[in-house]
């Protein structure tokens, strides 16, 4: 197989800058609150009815409000970069179900395993990251090239 690079959409500068910001956000949460910036775990915790108004839900809710407001605030600073979503609504639903269920079963997602877990050299996170990347490569191949 020959690998061709999509130079048109490859944005090394902004990818690295944004990546450094992800690292900064995750590091702030770690240094000042002693917590892991794992979005799926944080979200799953706050949506449990029994956790409502608990002390442990408070910091998670604050972090999520910060995260979500990034999308709301950004357009006031600069134009949002274009986003193109190729998936149909039923596909989005199927994808959401898989991402929600899978992230809970696998104890984490791209942020918790892929960034924080790899940063702390966790073998579990390495295995999880290799697994979701592999499934991602195969699924993309099947949806784009196997017809």
């Amino acid at each position: 197989m020959q690998l061709t690079i999509d130079w048109l959409h490859f944005t090394p500068g902004s990818a690295l800058t944004g990546g450094l910001m992800l690292g900064l956000g995750a590091s702030m949460l770690l240094l000042f609150s002693g917590k892991i910036a794992g979005i799926s775990g944080i979200l799953a915790y706050v949506i449990k009815p029994s956790h409502l108004f608990s002390q442990d839900a408070a910091w998670r809710a604050l972090f999520l409000i910060g995260l979500i407001s990034a999308g709301t605030i950004y357009p006031f600073i600069a134009d949002l970069p274009p986003a193109s979503i190729a998936a149909s609504n039923p596909t989005l639903m199927m994808a959401g179900l898989l991402v929600g269920f899978g992230s809970r079963m696998g104890s984490g997602c791209t942020s918790g395993h892929g960034i924080c877990g790899l940063s702390r050299l966790s073998l579990r996170s390495l295995l999880a990251t290799v697994s979701f990347m592999a499934a991602g490569f195969v699924t993309t191949y099947l949806t784009l090239h196997a017809s």
Partner: peptide
């Protein structure tokens, strides 16, 4: 569970191009 869950997650991630963080921001 770690492996099966991550495989399911990866399949969903590829179907939509969204994972939890970016989806919340969007």
């Amino acid at each position: 569970e770690l492996i099966i869950g991550s495989l399911l997650f990866g399949a969903g991630w590829a179907l939509a191009g969204f994972c939890p963080g970016p989806a919340l921001v969007a």
